[in-house]
Amino acid sequence: MLKVEDIVAAYGPIVALHGVSLEVPEGSIVTVLGANGAGKSTTLRAITGLLRPKSGTIEFEGSRIDRLSAEEIVSLGMSHIPEGRQLFSELTVLENLRLGAYSRFSGTDGGSRLAQREDLSPLGRLQHKLFHAATGGIRDVARGIRGYRQRRQDFEAALNQVFDYFPILAERKKQIAGTLSGGEQQMLAIGRGLMASPRLLLLDEPSMGLAPMVTREIFEIIRAINKSQGVTILVVEQNANLALEIAHYGYVLETGRIALADTSENLRKSEAVQRSYLGQ
């Protein structure tokens, strides 16, 4: 479903990824383990277009996405739940969830742009851009009106599903997101990501700053999301124990390079992983 090949990514002069490759098969849970600063978050940022890779390719469901912007990539069916949750902390829980579904309502149509933009010359791309700017607005409005009822229903369905996974969010609908507890905030972050009904969910350290009990609960829900809805999941973690428990495959990232790749079973048995990441 997702295929990352040999990507190099840098922050200005600081190179954070030196050619990372990984693959996420449809329907699976894949984890990327690594110490602080290994480049896990950078990998996710490169995949979702927040950081444009210097070289290498990224394919999502068979098409290149490494030249698309974050906004376009999101509407292709990929949700990125960033490190530190990044909630809209002054908005209510419900507003956060509504924003999660924004790509349904907005006209951002990554799919159609993808089809038209591939293999365009720079001049062609510019023409396309101008054309899109002119027609985009009108078409968005038209689509918005036509599909409104359908979108509304989809939205309600997604909302109910999120509330099924996280009943606490239904209770706290009107609460300001910044005043939730840490665990609740992580639930809201995941819920917000699910509102777009993604086929691929990217999670960046969901256990960060949470009590072990809460972490376990959240990982159970992640597993449930994968099982019952068939959402493919790529989860980045420092907490190797739990991650390997729910994941089918795992990668170990060390200073911007993939050091190990195997099934989670084998990784758990591997001596190197046990020593460095499982504390045994």
Partner: peptide, 11 residues
Amino acid sequence: QNPVASRLMGI
């Protein structure tokens, strides 16, 4: 409030 998170919402 949060431009980066907004981009991840497709805004």
